[in-house]
Amino acid sequence: MTGKDVPGLIEAKDSIPAGTKINVTFLGNEDLDMRVAAAKAVKELGFVPVPHISARRLQSQGQLEEFLERLQEVGATEHVFAVGGDPAKPEGPYPDSLSVIRSGILQKYGVREVSIAGYPEGHPDISDDVLWRHLEDKSAALKEQGLDAVILTQFAFDTEPVMAWIREVRAKGIDTQIRIGTPGPAGVKRLLAFARRFGVGANAMIVKKYGFSLTNLMGTAGPDRFVTDLAALLAEEPTSGRVGLHFYTFGGLLATSNWAREFTAAQS
Rank of each mutant, 00 (worst) to 15 (best):
D129P: 02
L230T: 04
I53A: 04
I101C: 03
I126L: 06
V111M: 10
P93S: 06
V207E: 14
L254A: 14
V114L: 03
V36Y: 01
R190D: 02
Y248N: 07
Q267I: 09
T239W: 08
G75E: 11
P90W: 04
I126R: 03
V114H: 03
K209M: 14
P185L: 12
I16K: 01
I105V: 15
G241W: 03
G62D: 11
V42W: 05
D229N: 12
D129C: 02
L245H: 10
L131A: 04
S54K: 06
L131P: 01
K40F: 11
W259K: 09
K172E: 12
A141G: 09
I174H: 09
R56D: 01
E237Y: 09
K108Y: 08
D14I: 02
I53R: 01
Y94I: 06
T159E: 10
K40A: 15
A232E: 13
D224T: 10
K208H: 15
V227H: 03
E136M: 08
L142E: 01
A82T: 07
D96S: 06
D31G: 15
F250E: 07
A186S: 15
L142H: 00
R242L: 08
D33L: 09
V243L: 09
A266Y: 05
D175I: 05
G222K: 06
T2M: 12
A18M: 08
T2P: 06
L192M: 13
V200I: 15
L106W: 06
